[in-house]
Design a protein around this nucleic acid. Sequence first.
DNA 1: TTGTAAGCGTTATCAG
DNA 2: CTGATAACGCTTACAA
Lengths: 342, 342
Amino acid sequence: MRDVARQAGVSVKTVSRVFNEDRHVLPETRRRVEEALAALNYTPNMLARTFRDGRSPVIGLAVPSISDPFFAAIADGVEQVAAQHDMSVLITSLGAEGAREEGIVESLLRRQLGALVMAPTATDQGYLSRWSSKLPLVFVDRPPRGIDADCFVEDDLGGARTATAHLIDRGHRRIAFVGNSEDISTTANRLHGYRAALEEAGLPFERDLVLLGATTAAGAGRAAAALAAADPAPTAVFSSDAQTTMVLVPALSGRRLAIAAFGDFPMAATLSPALTVVDQDPDALGRLAAQRVLHRLEGDDREPSSLVTLPVRLIERASCRPPHDLVELFPSTTPSGGDARS
Amino acid sequence: MRDVARQAGVSVKTVSRVFNEDRHVLPETRRRVEEALAALNYTPNMLARTFRDGRSPVIGLAVPSISDPFFAAIADGVEQVAAQHDMSVLITSLGAEGAREEGIVESLLRRQLGALVMAPTATDQGYLSRWSSKLPLVFVDRPPRGIDADCFVEDDLGGARTATAHLIDRGHRRIAFVGNSEDISTTANRLHGYRAALEEAGLPFERDLVLLGATTAAGAGRAAAALAAADPAPTAVFSSDAQTTMVLVPALSGRRLAIAAFGDFPMAATLSPALTVVDQDPDALGRLAAQRVLHRLEGDDREPSSLVTLPVRLIERASCRPPHDLVELFPSTTPSGGDARS
DNA sequence: TTGTAAGCGTTATCAG
DNA sequence: CTGATAACGCTTACAA
C-alpha cells in the first residue's frame, strides 16, 4: 500500500480511501491511485484488516460430526449464506460424546471469530456466557442449556408424534422407539412426541420398548435383539434419527415389522420397502442460522434471542403396512462384504 | 497484555516471554507474571499474532460440495489432523460446474490462509501459480492441471478396471458406463479403466454405451432411457461415482441388470440386491492431505511435489449376477413420496 | 534476565 | 479533499 501511495504521489490514507470507495477523493486523484493500484497489482492484507477491527469475517461452525449427512447439509446452508456476504466458515467436529465440547469450542472462540453457529453435544453450555456479549451465538438443531441464545430447531415433538400416530392409524398397538440418547434434546423431544401419540390413542407407554444407544452397528444390533425378545413382540418401530435408521435397517433385515423414521436420507426411498420418514430441512436450518448471525452482526440492536421451530412433514412411502400385512424388511441378498463405513 | 505487565510490574515483553514459555525468565518473575495472567484472565489475541507473522493457522478446504458424503468424509479427515495441530479448517463449496472455481478460490486465498487443500472442479488451475510459492497447495481426489503440486488420489483406473473385469468374469459382454463428465479427471480415469478391462477381454468399446451427465435425477433418467433403448441391450452397468449411483439406482428400479459401482455409500449393502462397489477411503485422503500440508509448513525444504495414489478394493455383494440369472433391481414399493433431497 | 523500540498493514482521528 | 500520526496486540532485534 505504501508502494502504491508513493507511485501515485499520495499518502497511504488516500490509497485506502480510493480502495474503499470513499467519496471524498478528487476524480483526478482517484484516477492516479487506481492506476497505481492496478500497476502494482495491489492486494489488501486481510490479516491486517481483521486485526485492526478486532474481528474476523469468519463464522465458526461446530457440529457433532461433519461427515454426518445431516450436519453436512447444515454446513452447506451456512456456507451458502456466508459466501454471499463475503464471510468464511470455519468448521469443527465436536465428536458425539460431549466431553470435548467445551475445550474445542473455547479454542475456536479464542481465534476471534465473528460469530459461532453450533449444534451442541454437551449437556450444558453455561461456559459460553463469558462469550455471549462478544459475538453472536446461534444454535442449530439443538437448543442450548444454561445460556440464552438464538436457536433454530425442527419440530421434533410434532414430527415424532405424527409418525407414531401414523403407525397407530395403520393398526399398530405395540410400537418400539429406537434412538440415540435422552441427553440429546432432539431425541428427548422425539421421545415426548412418541409418548404423546401413544397417550392420545390411549395406548400404554412401556419403558421396555424404548431402546437407546442405537447409533452404531453394535448398538443397533442390541436394539434389534431387544425387539425380538420383547413379549409380546412389537409390530412396529419408530426410529428417532437418521444415524440410527441407517444402522438399524441392516440389523432388521428379514424381520416383519412396520417402520417409520425421523430424518430422510439418500436411498431411503429406494430401500425395499421404501421407508416412510419425517422429512427435515437441514439446509434451511443452516441458512437461517447464518442469516441470523449476519443480522446480529449488523444491527447493534439488542433484540431478545428467539427460538424458531421449523415444521417437518411426513413422507409416506411403503414401510408402514398394517400388522396383518407386514412384509419382510430389507431382504438380505449380500453374499459377502459389510455395509459402508459409516 | 499491557495490563498484565503493569499488574506484575514488568514489561510486556516479559509477559510475552512467560506466556510463550521462554526459558530466560527468573522463576520469581515468572511466578508474578503467571499470577497476573491468571488474575486478569488474559487471553492472547490470535488476530494480532497471526497478523504479525503474516499467516494464519488455517487450512482452506475447497471441494465441489460439502454436502456430498464423499467430500464431507474428506473434510472430516482434514479436520481431524488439523485439530491435532491446533489448526482450523475453512471450508468452501465450489459448485459442480467449475466456472466459479477461480473466483471463489482467489478470494479464499486473499484471506492469507496458511495452506489450501482442494478438489478442483475447473479444467485448469494455472491461475494458482501466482500463489504456489506463498503457501502449500495440496490437491485431493483430482489432480491439478496447469500447475504442479502435491496430490492424493484413489486408484481410479485400477478400480474401474477391476470392477469392469468382475462383470466380465460374471459373463457380461455388453456393459454400459454411466458417470459424471469426462472433464473431471476421476471420471476420465475410470472410463480408461473400463476400456482397459474391455480390451483385455477382447470386447469392443462402444461409445453408445457411455452415458455421461448422470449425476442428477434427470440425467440418470436419461441414462436409464438410453440403456433401455440400446440394441442389443446391455446386461450390466458400471456406475462411475457414488453421486451417479445414488440417482441411477432409483432410475433403474425394476430392470434386470447387473450393476457395479465406484464408491461405497451408506445403505449400498442394504439395497436389494446389495450393491457390489469399489471402496474408497476419503477419510484417509483428507488425513494424508492435511499431513502433507503440515509437513510442507514445517520443513522449508523444497521437496519435489508428489502424486500419491491410494489403493481401492472391490467389495463383492449381490448386484453382479450372471446375465442368465438376473433379478429385478431395487423393486419399487413406494406408493407415494419421492427420494430424499440429495 | 529484562527492557526498549520498532514494525507488521490498515484505518480513524484530526488537522491542514 | 488530503495527509500526518497514532493505534490495534504481539514479537523480534537489539540494548542494557
